[in-house]
């Protein structure tokens, strides 16, 4: 009886942990920046919340833009965004990004776009499993702005580029197979 109770307890703990583990890329090391930032965005949506968001947009918006958003959302399992805008430069260090970049150097992740200047970094990564893109990450660091995006699930970047009507600029996405310079 005691053993059954323990097994049930452990199974319950594992079940509770599972949603968090879906976010394979953990955005760490940026916790103190929100206090220094002029504006900050901290969004974490797991599959449950994405499902709720999908249903909300489906029932409340019938126009084409909303359908484009739904098309992008439908393939996602999790999305995490940390974005900071500062009044002045020097509020964060490039070393703060190292825990995230270290995860992105692990097998499975590929850097597809990279642009680096002395105080600016723009990097785009994709994560593949069995030949399919299952994850996507962006690091964008400028003197007064810092943003990290992590997306789990299948995402069609050309669908994302169609979201201009909701304030999302229409963008031409570089070929996913092209390696950055």
């Amino acid at each position: 009886m005691r053993r059954i109770f323990l097994i049930t307890l452990i199974a319950g703990c594992v079940a509770v942990q599972l949603p968090g583990q879906l976010l394979q890329l953990r955005i760490t090391g940026l916790d103190g920046l929100a206090a220094k930032a002029k504006e900050s965005v901290d969004i974490t949506l797991d599959s449950n919340l994405l499902g709720i968001a999908f249903q909300f947009l489906k029932s409340n918006s019938k126009d084409k833009d909303a359908k484009d958003v739904q098309a992008v959302l439908s393939g996602l399992k999790a999305i995490t965004v940390r974005s900071f805008e500062f009044n002045e430069a020097g509020q964060y260090r490039m070393e703060d990004l190292e825990p995230i970049r270290a995860q992105l150097r692990t097998p499975g992740w590929s850097k597809i776009v990279s642009s680096q200047k002395k105080d600016e970094i723009s990097e785009i990564y994709t994560r593949t499993e069995q030949g399919k893109v299952v994850g996507f990450a962006i690091i964008s660091a400028e003197p007064k702005e810092l943003a990290v995006v992590a997306i789990e699930g299948s995402i069609n970047l050309s669908d994302l580029s169609k979201l201009g009507g909701l304030g999302v600029p229409a963008i031409a996405i570089p070929d996913q197979g092209k390696k950055g310079k």
């Binding site: 919340l49 999908f54 959302l73 994302l160 979201l163 963008i171």
Partner: peptide
Amino acid sequence: EAVLALRITAEKL
């Protein structure tokens, strides 16, 4: 939040 997250993602891309 989902729309905002996608907007930021698209902007950074």
